[in-house]
Design a protein around this nucleic acid. Structure first.
Lengths: 118, 118
DNA sequence: TCAACATATGAACAGTTGTTCATATGTTTG
DNA sequence: CAAACATATGAACAACTGTTCATATGTTGA
């Protein structure tokens, strides 16, 4: 802990800060999960689906038509979104309606948009 | 616009809503950029780098040592982060210090963490 | 200017991801 | 129950991504 692997010989950053940072870091696993979550936002098909669901819950085939993609592709992506707990599903007869799971989705996407616009 | 490609024959979602959603959607390009932005957050090495930079600006080799990765790997990822304008760099002699570009990064990661914890 | 050091970068490779196609599951209606 | 329809899923393939290795660039001090 006190000894460091050879790297830069002169450390501008104090060892205290490095130690402090190490203590403050969440577990590897938690950070891995966080990256996995953002990975879900990192695909334009899925972002588009989420944007649609901002307005209204919708069934798979309407999503497919709206986004100009096959039912299969949309269904695969909805599964990813569902596993990440970003959307939930509600069955009504033959059709399944998907809707946003909670408001973090809006906030996260909103902040992303803000970042793009600055 | 009024005519729809054959899909579900009975539409539970009113055509008005579909039209409304279409109008409210940002451009393809914007949504693509948004997904690209989140893609940057979607890697645990990059998330870890960002977390470290929450605490303090840091040089490449310190980051490499802290995260137990090669200098090259870190440097490649810093470039990605820089291109996305999530971090900025400051040169001081031989060493280059990287730091967070703005506070959206904190908010976005914070919201992501919140989502995981619910 | 040259050696030593910190960082950046290009090529290559393995691992991952999104779509398509074919098909399976599940639901309603006759 | 069978047909029709909406959705889900598995396999396969192309495209993309992150790391490594080798090397280049840029900076300092002798």
């Amino acid at each position: 802990m006190e000894e460091r692997i050879e790297c830069c010989d002169e450390h501008r950053v104090h060892p205290e800060i490095v130690t402090h940072v190490k203590l403050d870091m969440p577990d590897e696993e938690r950070l891995y999960d966080l990256a996995e979550l953002f990975k879900v936002f990192g695909d334009s098909t899925r972002v588009r689906i989420l944007y649609v669901l901002f307005e209204s819950e919708m069934c798979v085939c309407d999503l497919a038509e709206l986004l100009g993609m096959t039912q299969s592709a949309i269904s695969h992506q909805l599964r990813v979104l569902k596993q990440a707990k970003l959307v939930r599903a509600r069955r009504e007869g033959k059709t399944v309606f998907y809707f946003l799971a909670d408001d973090h989705v809006r906030t996260i996407i909103g902040q992303g948009m803000e970042h793009l616009c600055e």
